[in-house]
């Protein structure tokens, strides 16, 4: 039982690792942004998991039964906000990538020494 109870934390950590690795080790800028998305999804999982209550239901009261067992609404609200933040960051990041492609002709290896006029 313990192993199963900890399962979500395991996946949280593993997803975090996968996403973070892609952010650091991938050279392609679109790939980096995908890595960021996975990285953030891991955090969503952390929050949603901590608010779940055994035997509970979604925090929507059905049939005026306010006494039932509900999962915690607060982490869900936080994650709704975080998802929105994530898509906003992705959109802005992609717009920058498009401009990088237009000005450099590539979307990886952007650290290569440039023939730009010195500073």
């Amino acid at each position: 039982m313990l192993a199963l109870d900890l399962f979500n934390s395991w996946i949280f950590v593993l997803l975090l690792m996968v996403g973070f690795y892609a952010v650091i080790a991938r050279d392609n800028l679109v790939k980096k942004l995908m890595g960021l998305s996975i990285f953030q999804s891991a955090v969503f999982l952390l929050f949603i998991t901590m608010g779940t209550v055994t035997g509970g239901t979604a925090p929507i009261v059905l049939g005026d039964d306010w006494g039932a067992v509900f999962s915690n609404p607060l982490p869900q609200v936080l994650i709704l906000t975080a998802i929105v933040v994530g898509i906003s960051t992705l959109a802005l990041g992609l717009a920058i990538v498009v401009r990088i492609k237009e000005s450099y002709g590539r979307i990886s290896d952007i650290d290569a020494p440039e023939r730009d006029r010195r500073l």
Binding site: L2, L6, V53, T54, N72, P75
Partner: peptide, 13 residues
């Protein structure tokens, strides 16, 4: 060893 899931007595809940 911190079960995340399900504890209704967890402070967060």
């Amino acid at each position: 060893e911190k079960p995340l899931v399900g504890d209704p007595e967890a402070p967060v809940n």
